[in-house]
Amino acid sequence: MNDAPQPIRVLVCDDQALVRAGYVTIFSAQPDMEVVGEAENGHEAVQTALRLRPDVVVMDIRMPLLDGIQATRHLAGPHAQDPPKVLVVTTFNVDAYVYDAFKAGASGFLLKDSPPAELVGGIRTVARGDALLAPAVTRHLIGHFAEHLRPAHAERDSVAETLTPRELEVFQQVAQGLSNAEIAAVLFITPETVKTYVSRILAKLGLRDRVQAVVLAHRIGFMTHP
């Protein structure tokens, strides 16, 4: 009986053949990853992902026929069934792309000039359900766009009523982009306890992952004072 964990099944989507080949080489060399397919445009990305059901889709933004944002929305948007995790990797460090990618359902965002180890780590991060922002994509980006939205006071009140005081504290730290270890240090609890709180918060608020929690927190003006 083989109890070894199943590898992370990865689909690589990019319109440049050389980039795809590089990704395949890097990811296939990892003992815990399996590249199950490739796609050269957004339409093919959607069709291939629906057919192969990968765990993680590595998605470029600027692709023909259907761009990466639209493809992400098809695969991981609010109406998607059994959505994969989408890791957006692009050369374009533009605020709007980051915000649009997360709104579309992406779980992470990295730049193509990220070191291979960071790309590999990004796949592992989103595969286990955590959100990922590249160091070069600073945490204030989502907030920059959310500042132009009228705070949803009714939704804010609903969140405050739904979560316990301790969960609200953890939610606020998650909204700042802190990892479980960082939250544990701030609140003087263990990372395992933080993980439990985060899972409970996501379930109560009907959120898929930490990215959605960050977007919600910004939208309802929950960044500094719960």
Rank of each mutant, 00 (worst) to 15 (best):
A106W: 10
H144P: 01
D209N: 15
H140M: 11
A45L: 01
D67H: 11
P54R: 03
G143S: 14
H43F: 07
L52T: 06
D157V: 13
E169D: 15
E40F: 03
G22T: 09
D14F: 00
I183Y: 04
I61V: 14
R20E: 07
V86Y: 12
Q16R: 05
I61R: 11
T125N: 09
S179H: 10
L141G: 07
A181G: 06
A76S: 14
V211T: 14
V56Q: 12
R156V: 09
A80M: 00
A152D: 15
G108Q: 02
T125Y: 05
L163E: 13
R139H: 13
D95A: 15
T164M: 00
L149Q: 15
L141P: 05
R124A: 02
H148P: 01
I8W: 09
G22V: 09
V214D: 00
A45F: 04
Q70T: 08
I26E: 06
V214I: 15
A117H: 01
R20T: 07
R128Q: 13
R210T: 14
P135D: 11
R200T: 09
I69H: 04
V186M: 01
Q173P: 04
N2R: 05
Q81E: 10
A203S: 13
A134R: 00
Q81N: 06
H153K: 13
Q16G: 04
S199K: 12
V214G: 02
